[in-house]
Computed example of a mutant assay.
Amino acid sequence: MRVLLTGGAGYIGSHTAVNLISDGNKVLLYDNLSNSDASVINGIAAITGVKPTLIKGDVLDEIGLVNAIEKFKPDAVIHFAGLKSVKESSLKPLEYYSTNVGGIVTLLRAMLKTGVNNVVFSSSATVYDSRQKMPVDENGIVGNAANPYGETKIICEKILADIWRRYSLNVTILRYFNPIGAHPSAMIGENPVYPNNLAPYITEVALGKREYLGVFGNDYPTVDGTGVRDYIHVCDLAEGHSLALKNMDGLKVYNLGTGKGSSVLEVLRAFCNVEERDIPYRIMPRREGDVAELVACCDKAKKELGFAPVYNLTDMARSCLAYARKNFSGKIK
């Protein structure tokens, strides 16, 4: 299969590229490199023996997308490209609506023009109303997102459903919970220009780049007062995309998580256990747009796709630290 990955040089995109290439697929990465680095293709090549082509292009550029699709002739598109910071989305809502919603509209136009009929969409657990009982399955209440980022994903899902009804595209929506970890080779991992997720901050503290980890809120109704999320290893998440591509038929929606929630302090403890020492942290005020708990029920993905995560929280922490030590040595104090 030939697969175009928008945002393919990013964290999840690059790991999915490794998974797809290892399964014998051909991939094209299309990325504007706003929060990633072109050098990731060297890591992908080192792992797979295949150096993928990377086109620097913006998902809002319809002509650029059409040109890339016409040249590569993909069987399917996986749409990763977009802005993803919960905190930033509350500060820059217009930018998030423009990029995330505008991006899916532009991509779908390009696909319809070029006759590509299969798309996998990178959605998020933030589409769910967090006030419902956890873990939440795909029939859970969608709406009342706590932040503009989540709202953009809700709108994108609605657009995809409408396009499926009108044009009969095969659409699979994957609602990620919280990706974490790095490839076991430590050749690729989470290396954002602007960190948004928990793990990069913990590793920076562990390796001396930051003085402490800021923990946003300790008064949530959770096991220890800190936010609880369903953390999934990025390699497990990448496998979920490969499985989805093998089961494209109509409109489908799947949760991708582990079904187990962990608090911020529990994640931090996993890193401390790997390091065999304490990692300093400070409690900070709650962050706008955060919710108390989001945990997946993944029974549907297990039954229909054969999705079965294999990595645990310790594996996630260990791989993050190994990747950071291998790749950030020149950046650490």
Rank of each mutant, 00 (worst) to 15 (best):
M1K: 15
V3F: 04
T6P: 10
G8R: 09
G8W: 08
G8Y: 09
Y11H: 14
G13K: 08
H15Y: 10
V18C: 05
V18M: 04
V27F: 05
V27N: 02
L28R: 03
D31M: 08
N32S: 10
L33S: 08
S34R: 14
S39R: 06
N42F: 00
I44Q: 06
A46D: 03
V50S: 04
G57V: 10
D61K: 13
E62I: 05
G64R: 09
V66T: 12
N67T: 05
N67F: 02
I69E: 06
K71N: 07
F72C: 07
F72N: 04
K73I: 12
A76D: 07
F80Y: 14
F80M: 05
A81R: 01
E88Y: 00
S89T: 06
K92E: 06
K92L: 09
P93C: 06
L94V: 01
E95T: 13
N100E: 11
N100T: 11
V101E: 12
T106K: 07
L108N: 01
T114Y: 01
T114E: 01
V116C: 00
F121Y: 15
S122Y: 12
S124V: 15
V127L: 13
S130F: 15
K133P: 10
M134I: 03
D137T: 06
G143T: 07
N144F: 06
A146F: 00
P148L: 07
Y149L: 05
Y149D: 01
G150I: 12
K153R: 14
K158S: 02
I163D: 09
W164T: 00
Y167F: 12
Y176G: 10
F177G: 06
P179S: 08
H183Y: 09
S185N: 12
I188Y: 08
G189F: 13
Y194D: 15
Y194H: 15
P195Y: 12
N196A: 10
Y201D: 08
I202T: 09
E204S: 15
L207V: 03
E211C: 01
E211N: 11
Y212W: 11
V215S: 04
F216T: 05
G217S: 00
Y220I: 03
Y220E: 08
T222V: 07
T222P: 11
V223R: 15
T226V: 02
D230N: 13
H233S: 11
C235I: 14
D236Q: 14
L237A: 14
L237W: 13
H241R: 10
H241S: 15
S242G: 15
L245W: 07
D249V: 02
L251G: 05
K252S: 09
N255R: 13
T258N: 05
G259Q: 01
G261W: 09
V267F: 04
V267L: 02
F271W: 02
N273C: 01
N273E: 13
V274C: 00
E275I: 00
P280H: 13
Y281Q: 14
I283D: 14
R287G: 13
E288K: 14
G289E: 02
A292Y: 03
A296R: 07
C297K: 05
C297P: 04
K300C: 08
V310S: 09
Y311H: 09
N312L: 06
T314P: 12
D315H: 12
M316V: 10
R325P: 01
F328K: 02
G330S: 08
G330C: 06
K331W: 00
I332K: 02
